Amino acid sequence: MPYVTTRDGVEIFYKDWGSGQPIVFSHGWPLSGDDWDAQMLFFLGQGYRVIAHDRRGHGRSSQVAEGHDMDHYADDLKAVTEHLGLRDAIHIGHSTGGGEVAHYLGRHGDQGVAKAVLVSAVTPFMLQTEGNPEGTPKSVFDEFQAQLAANRAQFYLDVPTGPFYGFDQPGAKPSEGSIRNWWRQGMMGGAKAQHDGIVAFSQTDLSDSLRRISIPVLVMHSEDDQIVPYAAAGPKAAKLLRNGTLKTYQGLPHGMHTTHAETINADILAFLRG
């Protein structure tokens, strides 16, 4: 299997299919590059080269004890892009992966990158503070960590069965396959990485990273996202970007790229071709 080794010795697994303009996908917590299957196959069919990596401590990458923070996530993404020699790349990130993409571009610059897409992203800042009253209270994230530590396997069934895909909403039709696939990906990764990752995605203010990005960025977020509340994320992120476009959805869940892949894929394709 293909891996790139980072400067601190972490082996990052990646998938690299096709040719043409590269699209690099960054996954959400606590999943893996497999979460982008519907997008990888679709954009491969549209003539793009598609690449997805497993974040350190997740999926098939090294289950190291340290480095589970946005700085390392961004640096690991840079290691992948440099290893593959990518030019004119498009970066797409979901949830924590959206934060990873934003920080990668803000930390390392957006030269050589054509466009970016942030899907249900944690940008700019999830934590509720005096300056960010729309954020989520720290007690919620503390409870996430407590549930993970107490019974990770059960927690990783409860999340996709409920709020992640909106299967807890009236009239929803739960997909057993999507639930099991979420659980499979989560349990492949390391508990330490995923435990620390909760702090990384909830307590990292990415506002400055967004301000530094000059390329066109599409921000896709649903007003009914139960994981990353819309008011604290989508509109704020788009406002901070120099060249941001906000695409707002109603009735779609946090994991809308899975539950409504046709809609999300079509909207991303229109942005890339526009």
Rank of each mutant, 00 (worst) to 15 (best):
M1P: 11
V4S: 12
V4P: 02
R7D: 15
D8G: 06
D8H: 05
G9D: 09
E11V: 00
I12K: 07
F13G: 00
Y14L: 06
Y14T: 12
K15I: 11
D16T: 07
D16S: 06
G18A: 01
Q21I: 13
I23C: 01
I23F: 03
F25E: 04
F25A: 06
H27F: 03
G28V: 10
P30S: 05
P30K: 08
S32Q: 07
D35K: 01
W36M: 05
F42G: 09
F43D: 09
R55S: 13
H58D: 09
G59L: 11
G59S: 06
S61R: 12
S61F: 08
S62A: 15
Q63N: 01
V64E: 04
V64Y: 03
G67Q: 04
A74T: 07
D75A: 14
L77V: 11
V80M: 08
L84D: 01
R87Y: 02
D88T: 09
I90A: 01
G93H: 02
G93I: 04
G97Y: 12
G98T: 04
G98S: 09
G99Y: 12
L105F: 12
G106L: 11
Q111S: 14
V113T: 14
V117T: 09
A121C: 07
F125K: 10
M126T: 10
L127C: 03
E130K: 10
N132P: 10
E134H: 11
G135S: 07
P137N: 04
K138Y: 11
S139H: 04
S139W: 07
V140D: 02
F141N: 05
E143D: 15
F144V: 14
F144A: 05
A146V: 08
L148Q: 03
L148D: 02
L148N: 04
A150S: 13
Q154K: 15
Y156C: 13
L157S: 07
P160H: 05
T161E: 13
P163A: 07
Y165A: 09
Y165M: 13
F167P: 06
F167A: 06
Q169E: 10
Q169V: 06
P170T: 08
G171N: 04
A172F: 03
A172W: 03
G177S: 09
S178R: 15
R180Y: 05
W182C: 07
W182R: 09
W183H: 15
R184H: 12
R184P: 00
M188L: 14
A191T: 14
H195E: 12
H195I: 13
G197Y: 14
V199T: 14
A200W: 13
S202V: 01
S209A: 15
R211V: 11
S214F: 03
I215S: 06
M220N: 06
M220R: 01
D224A: 15
I227R: 03
V228T: 15
Y230M: 01
A237Q: 04
L241H: 02
L241S: 05
T245C: 00
T245Q: 15
K247R: 15
H257P: 00
T258M: 13
H260V: 03
E262F: 02
N265Y: 09
I268V: 14
A270M: 00
